[in-house]
């Protein structure tokens, strides 16, 4: 049986009599409903994961791209002088909006997560950190390094590129993985529905024989099965999506400490994709059943 969208769309037309020719089958009905429910539930999470990863990649890209750090590692007596020299160089460098030396308190706050609040920072030979804010176009890092080498030999410029890029790549790949999961979920849904449809069609070989005996076309026979499976998948998909949304709301709200994990939410246009999950589940079931029916009817001919 050739697949064409027009005849497949016509199969969705409600026909009470045609729907009654196929006896209700509990096993395949439950299998389709459960598969659609589980897959829609997982799709909501995969979608949320993909979107959260996308947001993280975007945030890291935007926030870290326009900032750099300068570290002054010099003997204790020269730190202040080299810091002042470095600040002078930085403030006269095109592409730098602002350069500010971090206070001891700020440096303590940065170290606190690793060493605790009671770190005797005054006694440690810590390097002085300078926070640099850039323009959108940024600055010439190579040229700046040369100038700093002359004015403040203990200065090491970190433009974040070294560790920002792998993070962005990781987040981007996570997003791709999220979408790949959705594709796998779609394929798994199609496979499960195909199995259920095959089982239903095989169990109803006698019904198909009777329908053919009285002059039913293959399209008529297939449509009775296609409508039934599409409707079941739509119903299961709707409940699965709803349950997935509720589960997302149950996850604790975002906080800096928990970071990425608590950012697993749907925002903005993401809701359009979520709303599309049930009808897409129904569509996948429709196409899968159409192909399964075509193959089985061909075999039974």
């Amino acid at each position: 049986m050739k697949f064409d969208f027009r005849s497949t769309a016509q199969m969705l037309r409600f026909d009470e009599k045609a729907d009654r020719v196929v006896p209700p089958t509990g096993f395949t009905a439950r299998l389709t409903l459960f598969s659609a429910f589980a897959m829609a539930f997982l799709a909501v999470f995969a979608l949320a994961l993909s979107m959260a990863a996308g947001r993280v990649a975007e945030r890291w890209g935007e926030e870290l791209a326009q900032s750099s750090t300068l570290r002054i590692s010099a003997p204790a007596g020269e730190v202040a002088a080299q810091t002042d020299a470095a600040l002078r160089v930085l403030r006269t460098t095109p592409g730098i909006i602002d350069a500010r030396a971090l206070t001891l308190e700020e440096q303590r706050a940065l170290l606190a997560p690793w060493f605790g609040d009671d770190l005797p920072i005054d006694d440690l030979p810590l390097p002085q950190l300078i926070d640099i804010s850039e323009t959108e176009d940024g600055f010439d890092a190579a040229g700046l390094r040369l100038r700093l080498a002359a004015e403040a030999p203990g200065a090491v410029l970190d433009d974040h590129a070294r560790w920002r890029q792998p993070l962005i790549e990781a987040a981007t790949r996570l997003r791709v993985l999220g979408w790949a999961s959705i594709l796998l979920i779609t394929a798994a849904t199609a496979a499960m529905v195909t199995l259920a449809a095959n089982a239903a069609l095989a169990a109803n070989a006698q019904v198909i024989a009777v329908l053919r005996l009285v002059g039913a076309k293959d399209t008529y026979i297939a449509s009775a099965f296609v409508r039934r499976f599409a409707l079941r998948a739509l119903t299961g998909g709707a409940f699965g999506t709803l349950t997935g949304i509720i589960a997302l709301f149950v996850i604790p709200s975002s906080s800096d400490a928990a970071g990425f994990l608590t950012g697993l939410t749907i925002q903005g246009v993401g809701w359009v994709w979520v709303v599309l999950i049930p009808p897409l589940t129904g569509l996948v079931a429709l196409i899968a059943t159409r192909f399964a029916a075509g193959r089985v009817l061909e075999e039974l001919a």
């Binding site: 009654r20 020719v21 006896p23 209700p24 009777v210 005996l213 009285v214 039913a216 008529y220």
Partner: peptide, 29 residues
């Protein structure tokens, strides 16, 4: 086949539908 009525020895029917609907099945299909 709609122009040919067939009666089999084993009389295949849709067992979940009443006689009336089985008889009217050719009209429905």
């Amino acid at each position: 086949r709609r122009k040919v009525g067939v009666v089999h020895q084993d009389c295949q029917f849709l067992d979940h539908l009443p006689v009336e609907e089985n008889v009217a099945l050719p009209l429905a299909v």
